[in-house]
């Protein structure tokens, strides 16, 4: 039985978080219902604790709710999604809606500045996703003082501008003032347009340095895998009897962001024998040309390096999608065993 007085507030670090929580508390008092404050966080390992930064933002919301609410306020806080991989904003929304249904929540109060990642304001508006689901939600009436770039947006824009300009100089090598000046203008335009598109989150020095350092190992490894797989591909294509045996599988990537899913999908596609056909959140549809390519995929030959790149060396220890059962054969020959043909490992 749905309790229509109960209100769900998804939490994200924003300047209007406190006002939104206060508004939700006000509504809950009118209706004599409880308030749930939840933050969706994609997991990396099934048993992982949420990151400090996520804990802090939820604590911030809870503090505000205690201040604004009556002593007997029924307040629940929760992290959602830590036990699953969520790569797209729509997967975060799904996770919210599941929680809402399971807890009999009548209404969602949305912070107008709530975002799941940095691309949301430009690429995917949460309001439009929620509207399509037909769930009851309202935006908290908080004071906004017009459009102002946030500090985070400025950092992202600056980084894009610098990268674009360095790329331009590196590729074209302009030396005269007019070319340099037009390069600066172009870089500024690119930065302004792409500040909420090119990065999902504002890059932080520590994690980025780690990823770049691991990339020095990842890129030669990937190139070597591509070369090896191309030799096999050449053998298959030039063989008189054309020994192909295509299959189509749905594979769930064990990574939790749009960028890492893209890296995973692209390394699948770059390696001959496997091709990413479609992607929906972290669910990928992969066409493989023969059984050995398919077995590699299910063993995690593509996934482990991507997890290493984004999550460090302990991230690479996860068993492949075949062993985890995170796949579903859609078409093609039956696999050798229920573990997805990983018996020869």
């Amino acid at each position: 039985m749905a309790d229509h007085g109960t209100i769900l507030v998804p939490i994200a670090p924003s300047s209007t978080l406190e006002q939104t929580v206060s508004h939700a508390i006000g509504l809950a008092r009118e209706r004599d219902g409880g308030v749930h404050l939840v933050r969706t966080v994609s997991g990396r390992y099934a048993d992982e604790e949420p990151a400090e930064v996520d804990k802090r933002v939820l604590e911030r919301a809870e503090r505000r709710a205690r201040e604004a609410g009556p002593d007997d306020l029924s307040l629940t806080t929760a992290f959602l999604g830590t036990d699953q991989y969520m790569a797209a904003p729509s997967e975060h929304i799904e996770c919210l809606l599941e929680y809402a249904a399971a807890n009999g929540i009548g209404e969602i109060v949305l912070d107008p500045n709530y975002t799941i990642d940095a691309t949301a304001p430009t690429l995917q508006s949460l309001e439009s996703i929620l509207e399509r689901t037909g769930v009851d939600f309202e935006q908290a009436p908080v004071a906004t003082d017009g459009w102002q770039p946030t500090g985070e947006e400025l950092i992202r824009a600056g980084l894009i501008g610098i990268v674009a300009f360095v790329f331009y100089v590196g590729l074209g090598g302009p030396t005269y003032p007019f070319a340099l000046a037009s390069g600066v203008v172009t870089a500024v335009i690119a930065a302004a347009l792409l500040r909420n598109v090119a990065f999902e989150t504002t890059p932080r020095l520590g994690p980025v340095a780690g990823t770049v350092a691991r990339g020095l190992y990842f890129v030669p490894y990937l190139l070597w895998e591509i070369t090896k797989a191309n030799v096999l591909f050449a053998y298959v294509v030039l063989h008189p009897s054309l020994p192909i045996d295509p299959g189509l599988d749905r594979v769930d990537a064990a990574v939790g962001s749009g960028l890492s899913v893209t890296a995973f999908a692209n390394s699948i596609t770059l390696t001959p024998g496997t091709l990413t056909v479609d992607a929906d959140g972290h669910h990928l549809l992969v066409h493989s040309l023969n059984q050995s390519a398919r077995e590699d995929l299910l063993e995690g030959v593509h996934e482990a390096p991507v997890r290493y790149l984004f999550y460090g060396s302990e991230g690479a220890d996860l068993p492949g999608p075949g062993e985890r059962g995170d796949f579903e054969a859609i078409l093609g020959p039956a696999l050798e065993d229920e573990n997805g043909g990983v018996t020869d490992e």
Partner: peptide, 16 residues
């Protein structure tokens, strides 16, 4: 030329 359908041809066209 040799591969049978659009998916397997895409393998050839974009990767080798």
């Amino acid at each position: 030329i040799r591969l049978p359908d659009i998916y397997s041809r895409t393998h050839a066209a974009t990767k080798a």
